[in-house]
């Protein structure tokens, strides 16, 4: 089983972190993983993306041609990567920043107002965790508990408030994803 995922958005929306948390948790669950970010001036120009591969097999290429899952936090990310999603694949996108959405009919689309949810929870920083929650809720790429454990050990002492918000954001994402089964 191999899942190839691309997360993309504006620099500062935390797309690299989505990939990192998922790769980290999948590794702890015994899977092979790779995490390959875009880097350089492209990011200063405002967009960032990361290819994450999670597999029960050794990972050959960390470069993803046809993602199974695309997480798009803004419209340019849909425009750039949605055409290459594998037929039957999954698109998770942020309706607040993707006014035109995606026209493809051969994939599952989960449209989530991530900015709204994040501001409801009380911090725009957790926008990427809403997206992460949707990924967890819709795929079996990682278990929620693994991520919760990691976040807790990472943040409990430094920033318990942010931890609570992050976990709330992930849970909201999972709930939303459950409506799509």
């Amino acid at each position: 089983m191999t899942t190839e995922m691309i997360c993309a958005g504006f620099g500062g929306q935390g797309v690299l972190t989505i990939g990192k948390f998922i790769a980290q948790a999948a590794m702890q669950e015994g899977k092979n993983v790779s995490w390959l970010p875009s880097y350089g001036p492209e990011m200063r120009g405002g967009t960032a993306n990361v290819s994450t591969v999670v597999s029960t097999e050794p990972i050959a290429s960390p470069i993803v041609s046809f993602p199974d899952v695309l997480v798009a936090l803004n419209q340019p990310s849909i425009d750039k990567f949605a055409p290459s999603i594998r037929p039957g694949g999954l698109l998770i996108y942020n309706t607040n920043m993707c006014p035109r959405g995606c026209k493809r009919e051969d994939i599952t689309k989960i449209a989530v107002p991530m900015n709204d949810i994040a501001s409801e929870i009380g911090s725009m920083i957790v926008l990427n965790m809403v997206a992460t929650g949707v990924v967890i809720g819709k795929t079996d790429i990682i278990k929620y508990e693994t991520l919760e454990g990691n976040l807790t050990s990472f943040m409990q002492e430094k920033n318990p408030d942010l931890l609570t918000k992050n976990l709330a954001a992930i849970k909201r994402g999972i709930e939303i994803a459950k409506q799509y089964t």
Partner: peptide, 10 residues
């Protein structure tokens, strides 16, 4: 190369 430098793997 830049990919091996920037990429994360276990």
């Amino acid at each position: 190369d830049g990919m091996l430098g920037q990429m994360m793997e276990p």
